[in-house]
Nucleic acid binder design. Sequence first.
DNA 1: AGTATATAGTTTATATGCGAACTATTATAA
DNA 2: TTATAATAGTTCGCATATAAACTATATACT
Lengths: 157, 157
Amino acid sequence: MVLKEELGLKQGFVDTAHEALLNVYYTASMMKKRADAFFSQFGLTDVQFNLLTLLYFQSGDEGGLSQAQISDMMLVNRANITSLVDRMEKAGFVERTAHSRDRRFNIIKLTTKGRTLFEKVQPIYIEQVRKVMSPLNQTELNNLMRMTEKIRKELRR
Amino acid sequence: MVLKEELGLKQGFVDTAHEALLNVYYTASMMKKRADAFFSQFGLTDVQFNLLTLLYFQSGDEGGLSQAQISDMMLVNRANITSLVDRMEKAGFVERTAHSRDRRFNIIKLTTKGRTLFEKVQPIYIEQVRKVMSPLNQTELNNLMRMTEKIRKELRR
DNA sequence: AGTATATAGTTTATATGCGAACTATTATAA
DNA sequence: TTATAATAGTTCGCATATAAACTATATACT
């Protein structure tokens, strides 16, 4: 019943399922705020760092990822990727390149500047993540992943 | 290691803590999408329904909640509450009223229209929540709440 | 009492998020 | 082969999110 006190709620949790859902939801919300505060030190948002991460680890056939692939991986609408890539391209962290055979695709690649920034920020970020998750031991982390995966599976039906 | 396959990621998870954090994060993201799809049936967003819920269950001394109180409870910036209340007031679901002694406060109250809508939507919403969380038994729900609470406690430091 | 500080709410600029309508390009089908 | 489908990306309108600068009001302090 922790969230009740945290949020000053006396009522409104109709049952445990609802309360658990809100726990997950508000925890993610707080994670995002912390991540945004962290990345702002480096002139980035959490979403922008996610894009750097994807491009750093996943080159794809054409040496980059299409905007549709990025959209699928980040679980966000394609319209967002257009503006996200616009901003990141303007900042010089990524570039749009042509696909070798299909002119519909924009292949997005990290620039040297983007790669350098990622390699600078990523280890510090992982340190922060470890600290945030430090109250949970390995067994708990595994249980947490197992349970949230069950929920996602249900949501995908 | 489920998220890796889900998101088509081959690398990028540096350790279990990071993977667990992203599990929570993407689960909440999917919950939000589902909630938004559900509430759009009734011309609402999930955020707007949250506001109705708060106002329905928490009257406060003045028979409503100040925007600052709403901001605290919803864990969002006060600037958002201004525009949220603007939209909800325009739609006729809430009203801004004066505080009896302190002219700085807007006391936000449900209108009859807002109360009626909430009472119509809420039971159907709770049904959906139970379905989404149905893969977890009571013990798992409690564990999930306990673990996310530990994370929030760490985030509040 | 009068000044400084704190609090509530608004506005602006910016970065997300969605769905729907649009263009360009490619693939499919008749 | 030509008409139709599907796919990739963009643009638009809207709803959310933040921080920062602003006004109005209330409180605290000397």
